[in-house]
């Protein structure tokens, strides 16, 4: 029982990341009809927004500590962040400590701008081209973006920790009446799950309860009719691309304390996220979210030692196996709509 609860919890945070990326992918596909293989790169760039803000906050001047030496035996150069001078050492340290949450504010405008520039500058030229062309150009863009990041930040992972207040883990087992230390779960992963739920809820509420969202939904259902009503649907879809980029970017920002970001992290998520989109049903936002959590939880269960002893290697294929079964039994995915990607 404890193992089951534990793996469900693990699946929830993994599923949160899949769901957030798949949500953005589906938004772009549903509005613009583009299969965006650069979406994983947007997740990665979001993570590097956190790295960048962290570096900005730790911009320093150098003082010489004559009492200590560096590796060459010279007096040690010590970097002192400017924020220490501006806000005092304890307040400055607290600001640096909270770099990841603060990065949310930094990432939103960056990611929306990047999304809009990507859409207007490149992707709009491929709307009327076959999906294969769209995949090639967006995949190429993803590689360019990750190489640019590697050029500036290097190939090694860069540690970007959570604030001190959220380090460590919560003992769920003790709360539920199990022995202590049996079901533990890191605080930051709980925050990630709650954050993902808020973002997903926010996107759905935005589409459901605002006029802008209503027009976008109408455009997704029948683009031509909306345009005939004199509404500039293209501009709204461009903004939706920016919104999808921001969702992926925020998913990346909040993921940085879970795994140190590196230039390749987007590709690690991309293929799985596409499987999530297809399993959820092309163009279905609730389907993407549902499939994200279902596949995340299944992946966690497949990694259990007891399962691996019976089915060695199942952890590496479970998502694809489930995808095959679902697509064989429900060709449009869990919540796919008729007519999407069927022409």
């Amino acid at each position: 029982m404890e193992a089951i609860i534990l793996q469900v919890l693990n699946g929830l945070d993994k599923g949160s990341a899949y769901a957030l990326i798949a949500l953005g992918l589906t938004l772009i596909f549903g509005t613009l009809g583009v299969v965006n293989f650069a979406h994983g790169a947007l997740f990665m760039i979001g993570a590097f927004c956190a790295v960048t803000l962290s570096r900005i906050l730790t911009l320093s001047h150098t003082i010489i500590d004559e009492t200590r030496t560096d590796f060459l035996g010279n007096p040690l150069k010590v970097d002192v962040p400017y924020v220490y001078g501006w806000f005092g050492e304890s307040a400055g340290a607290a600001i640096i400590d909270w770099a990841v949450p603060l990065s949310i504010l930094f990432a939103i405008p960056v990611m929306i701008t990047l999304g809009v520039v990507m859409e207007r500058g490149l992707i709009k030229h491929f709307y009327k081209r076959p999906h294969a062309d769209q995949i090639l150009v967006t995949f190429g863009l993803a590689i360019v973006l990750q190489e640019v990041i590697k050029y500036f930040y290097g190939a090694n992972p860069i540690p970007t920790p959570a604030p001190d207040a959220f380090r460590g883990s919560f003992d769920f087992g003790a709360m539920l009446g199990f022995d202590p230390n049996i079901i533990i779960y890191p605080y930051w992963r709980i925050i990630y799950f709650v954050f993902a739920a808020i973002i997903i809820g926010g996107v759905f509420a935005f589409l459901q309860f605002t006029t802008f969202g209503m027009v976008v939904r109408a455009g997704m259902a029948d683009r031509e009719t909306v345009q005939l009503l004199g509404i500039n649907i293209d501009r709204r879809f461009t903004l939706m691309f920016g919104l999808a980029a921001a969702v992926a970017g925020l998913a990346g920002v909040m993921y940085t304390p879970i795994n140190s970001p590196n230039y390749h992290m987007g590709m690690d998520f991309l293929v799985l996220s596409f499987v999530v989109v297809v399993v959820g049903g092309m163009g279905s936002l609730p389907g993407a979210v549902l499939a994200g959590f279902v596949l995340g939880i299944l992946e966690s269960f497949a990694s259990m030692r007891e399962v691996l002893e019976v089915l060695p290697g199942i952890n590496q294929i479970i998502i694809y196996l489930v995808a095959i079964i679902i697509l064989l039994t429900r060709p449009r995915g869990l919540m796919g709509r008729k007519g999407v990607m069927e022409d």
């Binding site: 793996q7 693990n10 945070d13 269960f301 990694s303």
Partner: peptide, 8 residues
């Protein structure tokens, strides 16, 4: 993400 391997 090694969480599902580390949790048990």
């Amino acid at each position: 993400d090694f969480s599902s391997y580390i949790a048990p």
